[in-house]
């Protein structure tokens, strides 16, 4: 009797959870759309940067979190996207929306070409090969002056003028759009047949093949998707900062940053990379403001502390907390819950 009541209570709770999630999503969408009206230029820039890094972390999550391939060299696609946009806009005179989409596709196509040989490697060997690729593309960008202006870089036109808020606003919305698309894609990966294939590959690639999964094609598609969104983010970034050169477009520090964000947030989850981006960027800004001369050291210590306190990442911590809470609710006698 009591059990029946309790289980109906829990089912009710689940229904409440679902509708709460829906309400939360709508509220979040409204807030994100209105945010530029409330923020100063400084905070709007930081928020845009959070959106960019969240996109990069999320795109990385598709190939690394779901498929298990540590593609630290994803900066190659960021840079290719940025350069493709700059070249399409300044040399081919293309419109901005078309240039952004084509830049994403250029990064995806580049990934499709180099993906097959590199995806034969696994683990650290894959990681280092992607890093080498990224550095090689940087050298190529620096040396193919006829296409890229070499080390001089490319200057891009601005999209808006006026107050700092007005200048940043279009880039904010563009980044938001890219992030939403990337998260939607990741969500699809997390629930779809394709995603089951990727997760099987992550667990055991040989076994996955024996279960009928075309591993070569699946990982290639996963990486191409990742490259596409990374390229889109690179394209919007290039528009935003209006000047790119090989050092800034193929900057490995970006890779370090988005991977730290995704890892601290939680790989293989949809919310993790976004939360991680928010956490790290806010932390960085707060620490930068408070400890100017030693902000790197303090941030370093903070990162170490986070790892020591939650070695499984933010999402793991939340999941564990939630599981504990559920267990407490589900066992009314609470006999075995208190340990």
């Amino acid at each position: 009797m009591l059990e029946a009541r309790l289980s109906s209570f829990l089912r009710e709770g689940q229904r409440l959870q679902v509708s709460a999630a829906a309400v939360g999503a709508v509220a979040l969408a409204v807030v994100l759309l209105l945010l530029p009206n409330w923020l100063s230029g400084y905070w709007l820039r930081i928020t845009t940067s959070v959106l960019m890094f969240a996109t990069l972390a999320q795109a990385w999550n598709i190939i690394t979190g779901f498929t298990g391939y540590p593609a630290f060299g994803n900066t190659a696609f960021f840079g290719v996207g940025a350069y493709a946009l700059a070249i399409l806009v300044t040399k081919a005179g293309l419109g901005i929306p078309a240039a952004i989409v084509l830049a994403g596709l250029a990064a995806a196509a580049f990934c499709a070409v180099i993906g097959l040989p590199i995806l034969r490697l696994q683990g650290h060997y894959f990681a280092i090969a992607t890093l080498a690729l990224s550095l090689f593309v940087r050298e190529a960008a620096a040396n193919l002056g006829w296409l890229t202006n070499g080390a001089i870089g490319i200057v891009l036109p601005t999209l808006a003028s006026g107050s700092p808020e007005e200048i940043t606003r279009p880039y904010y919305y563009l980044m938001l759009l890219v992030l939403v698309a990337c998260c939607a894609c990741t969500w699809w990966v997390s629930v779809s047949r394709f995603g089951y294939g990727l997760r099987s590959i992550k667990a055991d690639e040989d076994a996955a093949a024996c279960f009928g999964i075309n591993t070569t094609l699946s990982k290639l598609v996963a990486w191409v998707l990742s490259a596409f969104f990374t390229g889109l983010a690179g394209a919007v970034w290039a528009l935003w900062i209006t000047f790119i050169d090989p050092q800034s477009a193929f900057n490995l520090a970006i890779a370090v940053k988005f991977s730290v964000m995704a890892l601290l947030g939680g790989l293989g989850t949809v919310a993790g990379p976004v939360l991680g981006a928010l956490l790290v960027e806010v932390l960085t800004q707060a620490i930068w403001g408070a400890f100017y001369a030693v902000h790197l050291a303090v941030l370093g210590l903070a990162i170490m502390l986070i790892v020591l306190l939650m070695p499984g990442g933010l999402m793991q911590l939340l999941r564990d907390r939630l599981a504990t809470a559920k267990r407490l609710l589900a066992t009314p006698s609470a006999k075995e819950s208190w340990r």
């Binding site: 047949r193 089951y196 294939g197 099987s200 996955a208 279960f211 009928g212 999964i213």
Partner: peptide
């Protein structure tokens, strides 16, 4: 489920 999705059945 992985077996059902990717084996001969090719569940969509």
């Amino acid at each position: 489920m992985v077996g059902a999705l990717f084996g001969r059945r090719q569940c969509r």
